[in-house]
Structure formats: structure tokens, C-alpha cells
Design a binder for these strands. Structure first.
Lengths: 221, 221
DNA sequence: CTATTATTCAAGCAATTAATTGAATAGTAT
DNA sequence: ATACTATTCAATTAATTGCTTGAATAATAG
């Protein structure tokens, strides 16, 4: 074959390794989770409703296309996204949200009929958060809160929310957030809170979006 | 199934439409070419060494994932990238170049033994270009030159290079460029020029990269 | 050493995809 | 109308991929 043609075929073949890695919905979900912080295989399997073997296979694919890195820590293998990968994932997500109308529809259908999920005036909400006029709940697992959270937020993992209810103010408005627009933890939190008589709304943005907007993020504690 | 799980599956399934679109080497090549300017199916088929039917099918896939748009112009159908798609493609290319070592190897193997292709001091070359100490040749097809080219460059499509040789200065250094690092037009141009006794080198960057570096780009003429 | 746990490997099946071929459609020119 | 050209459609084949299952490996604890 023509060497020029061969060169191009070889080059685009290499590029397509990245594309193949992100052509599977489950691998995208894995990447999304990994962008919140490193995880073990088992943890990822639980989050994605995959078998452990299947999760491991998907992670091998991601590793072979250099999108994730792994590190053995004792009995566990911890995976984390490679540099630049999260930015790439977000640009892909953004293009999907902007150009694929079905995504908005799926979101609306899912949130339909749920209280506190109506699209709020985002900028107004963010202003109130900044002025500390509301209580902000980070309902993700505690490791994720530690890895980075919205400044001023309180860590109340969804699982513990019911037990912690007593400590929350009934009069003050509550804003719950989790990993971003496709994470349902905050949806469940807001549902529960409203059922119990609190005034709660959901913030769609996750920590990444928050940071990307230039707003303050804290970590640790 | 659990409605939360269903929601996630549906969402990531939509995201994966973008990934599936860019998981094929040929579709990536098509996108790369389209980012240089709109094209007809036939033209794309010729550039990619695909059959017309096959090209059309790939373009349908890209259209269904909303990465390209089409417009019927008389007998022809003209395709062009959708908004944000080229930025996305470039970020994908960048991640591939940075993380997949094979790409550099393939490039080196291809350029090995060719004169004028040795990696030059890029910044020094760009300075000389800006100071107009060298002649810059844009060896892409004329439509692409018209759609946008490096300021000060002269359009000499590769096909016409041999005929235009007489008009080129033998003493002054010549810099040839085309679509970017994976376009071989400039490689062929530099090879020909050096064989004929000119002093020619290749600029790896394409117009997009040039613009991205904040350097002046012109169009028309 | 043995048992336990986390992860990976290997084989097999069902579903999806890329490329090929030949036919169909839609504009244009005569 | 008829001929011609660019593009798309439809059917087929070969190759690839995702998931499941059960076994293998590796680190740790008793």
C-alpha cells in the first residue's frame, strides 16, 4: 500500500483508541466517577451496577488507551484518571449536552413530578449560597467530600441523611448537591427532605463545575 | 429496573453516541479533513481512500451523533463540522499525542530518512516566518487556502508545485505547511523541493494550530 | 501453611459494526 | 421525457465487542 496512506491509517488508528475507550456508556460512567476521585475496582463495580470482572475488563480497556492509571495499594487496586482526561471528558459531556436533545428530555422525564427539582434561577441560587443565606449539603460519600467540596458545605452522605435530620434547621432553606447533573444522590436527598417538611432544592452543579465557574472550593476536614 | 439506574444508563448511553462516532479511525480522518473546511462526499471519499458509499455511511453516523451538519447544494451534499466539534477533536488529538507513545513512533518511522523533516527549532522557525526571512508555501488545495491560511503564505497546491518551481527563489529558505502534523502534503512538497536543490523545511503546524497560538491568519484571495 | 479477599484472566455466546456490492433516489442538463 | 451524476439505501459477510461464568493470581491475616 501507498506509504502515505499507511501512515495516515496507522495514525488515525491510534487516535481511535481514545475514541473506542469512550464509546461505551459504562466506561463513560466509570470515567465520570473517577473524575470525582480515585476508586477501587469493587467500589466502581458497586456504583455502576456491573460485575467486578466486567468492571475490571472495562478498566483494562481504559488503561490500554491510557485514560486511567492504576496503583496497587495492598490488597486493592486503585484507579484514577490520567492527566487531562477529566477535561477531555467534560468537553465531551458538554458537546453531548449541547447537541443531543435527547439528554435534556431524559433529564426532564426523570425529574418530572419531583419536588424541589424544578429548574431554579441558578445565578440567584448561587448568590444566596455565597451570601450563606442557605444551608449547603454535600450528600456524596465522605471520601469525595474530603477530596474537594463547595466552600461552606456540610458533609451529610445520603445514607446518613435520615439520621441527621434532627440537626438540620427546618426554617432555613437547604441546598443539596452531589457529583453533577447526572448524579442522583442530591435528587434523593431533596426528595427525602421535602417529604419530611424541609424546604430543600437541588443544585445541579458538582464540585468540578463549581471550581470551573471560579467559585471557592475547599478540601479535607 | 431501579429508576435511578435506568436514568444513568439512558444518560451515559446518549453520551456514548459521541464516543461511538469518534471510535472509528476513518471517521476521525473525515472529521480532521472537515475541520479544514466543508466538503462534498466525493471529495472526502477521495481524500480518505474510501468508497463513496462507505464514506456516505460514515457521514451518516457522524450526522446521527450530531458531529457534522449537511446541506444540499444542487447535485452535491456538502458536509461541515457542527459547532464546537473541531475544538473537541483537537482536545482528543492532544490527549492522544500526549499519552499514546506509539503516535510519536509512527511519525518518526514515517519521516525517517527524509530530508528537511528533522525536528527544527520550532520557535526559531516561527520567528523567522514572522520576520519574513523565509518564503512560506501553503501546499493544500486552493479552497483550503482561501478558507484560511497563515498570513504571508503563498498558495502552491502540491499538484502544481512542480510547474511553479521556476518562480521560487533558490537562495531563500522555503517553509512548507499543510493541514497539520498528520498531513503528508507538506512532507511531499519538502521532499520534492530538496530533491530539486531548494532549501526547504516542513512546518508541522496547520492553520488551526497557528491560530490557536495567537498568530495571524488571513483568508480569501 | 491455610483461608480469605480483591482483582484479573480465559473461554464462549449474543449483539454490534465496518466494509462491500448492487440497486434506488434526487437533482441537473439536453 | 432521457441521460447523467452525486448520494443514499439495503442486504450480506467478516470481524469486533460486551457480558457472563468459572478458574487463576496476588496480597494479607490467622
Amino acid at each position: 500500500m501507498n506509504p502515505n496512506r499507511r501512515f495516515k491509517d496507522e495514525i488515525y488508528d491510534q487516535f481511535s483508541r481514545i475514541g473506542k475507550a469512550v464509546s461505551s456508556p459504562k466506561r463513560l460512567e466509570l470515567l465520570d466517577i473517577l473524575c470525582q476521585g480515585e476508586r477501587t475496582v469493587e467500589n466502581l463495580a458497586r456504583e455502576t451496577s456491573l460485575t467486578v470482572a466486567n468492571t475490571s475488563q472495562h478498566l483494562q480497556v481504559l488503561k490500554n488507551s491510557r485514560l486511567v492509571e492504576q496503583e496497587k495499594k495492598g490488597l486493592y487496586v486503585v484507579y484514577r484518571p490520567a492527566p487531562m482526561v477529566c477535561e477531555f471528558f467534560f468537553s465531551m459531556r458538554k458537546i453531548a449536552e449541547n447537541r443531543i436533545a435527547e439528554i435534556e428530555q431524559i433529564k426532564n422525564r426523570f425529574l418530572e413530578g419531583k419536588k424541589g427539582m424544578e429548574p431554579v434561577d441558578r445565578d440567584a441560587l448561587i448568590k444566596r449560597i455565597q451570601k450563606e443565606e442557605v444551608t449547603i449539603l454535600d450528600v456524596r460519600p465522605p471520601e469525595e467530600f474530603r477530596a474537594g467540596h463547595i466552600s461552606g458545605a456540610v458533609s451529610v452522605p445520603l445514607q446518613e441523611l435520615e439520621l441527621m435530620l434532627a440537626k438540620l434547621p427546618k426554617t432555613r432553606e437547604i441546598v443539596a448537591y452531589c457529583r453533577g447533573p447526572y448524579c442522583v444522590l442530591s435528587v434523593q436527598a431533596v426528595e427525602l427532605l421535602n417529604k419530611k417538611g424541609y424546604h430543600a432544592v437541588r443544585l445541579e452543579e458538582g464540585v468540578q463545575d463549581w471550581r470551573a465557574m471560579g467559585l471557592p472550593v475547599a478540601s479535607g476536614e
